[in-house]
């Protein structure tokens, strides 16, 4: 499928190659459960990285940290900016977090309102907001759905609109939680093409190992709050001992 948009507004800003750097991130939930035990990794400009691991490995907890929704110990830098309480709004604009359930992500009655939510809350002007909405919808090839009602969409359409809701904020980094869960084969295929063609740095948590194999050159494996492997996807998928030790399967 040809890349149809390549809109200049989606070119991520220069950041000396490093889009995300996480250093010794630790987090325990109020009930005492330790979810992250010292996570460190970096993402470079244009990286598309899969984050795999069994349920309860801490993937979702890690993702909530990248946007400052949870605050653990350790350092997170996004495009060279340290995540602190003061620059939280700026960081949130740079990290586009897409949640697993699109019904949670799409909370407005219409598609337009949902895609406009991010830009509006960044304080952009009305013409700018409208322009952002149009280009974000174009990027996920859903321009015709601008005035649709969210509850009329199929799951696959909802997922794509959910991605548009963060693309409209022009993020430097896209963080997706289980994008292919619950999709039928055709919707999954459309999504794979979309993710492949988006020229943006991506960290994608998933159980879909075929998706990992097809789309992501690099894979991070997490288990019990730690990173247990981080390297080229082809190497990780060959390491059957590693996969079976962490409840994963070769596609």
């Amino acid at each position: 499928m040809p890349v149809t948009h390549l809109n200049s507004s989606f070119a991520p800003p220069e950041c000396d190659g490093e889009v995300l750097s996480v250093n010794d991130l630790q987090f325990a939930y109020p009930d005492g459960h330790v979810a992250l035990k010292g996570i460190s990794f970096t993402l470079c400009q244009g990286d598309k990285v899969a984050l795999v691991g069994p349920n309860g490995a801490g993937k979702s907890t890690l993702m909530l940290h990248l946007n400052g929704i949870l605050n653990g110990h350790g350092m997170i830098d996004v495009a060279g900016k340290r995540l602190t309480r003061d620059n939280l709004p700026a960081i949130r604009a740079m990290v586009g977090l897409v949640f697993q359930n699109p019904d949670d992500q799409l909370f407005s009655p219409t598609v337009f309102e949902d895609v406009a939510f991010g830009p509006l809350h960044m304080g952009l002007s009305e013409p700018e907001v409208r322009a952002r909405v149009d280009s974000a919808l174009e990027a996920v090839r859903m321009s015709a759905y601008r005035d649709r009602l969210s509850h009329h969409l199929s799951v696959g359409e909802k997922k794509r609109i959910a991605i548009a809701t963060v693309l409209s904020m022009n993020p430097s980094l896209l963080v997706l939680d289980e994008p292919s869960a619950g999709l039928d084969p055709r919707a999954r295929r459309t999504l794979i093409h979309l993710l492949r063609d988006l020229p943006i740095t991506m960290l994608v948590s998933t159980h879909d190992m075929k998706l990992v194999e097809e789309l992501f050159p690099r894979t991070i494996v997490m288990d019990e709050g730690q990173i247990v492997a981080d390297g080229p996807t082809c190497d990780i998928l060959e390491d059957e001992a590693l996969l079976s030790a962490h409840g994963l399967e070769k596609p």
């Binding site: 946007n67 929704i69 709004p89 949130r92 949670d104 909370f107 809350h121 963060v166 904020m169």
Partner: peptide, 24 residues
Amino acid sequence: ERSDRIYNAMVARGYVGHLYTLNP
């Protein structure tokens, strides 16, 4: 629990307690 997740999704997109809308 859903309202918690929705709140997170709103916060992730810059919501800090006040809602802005465009008049269409």
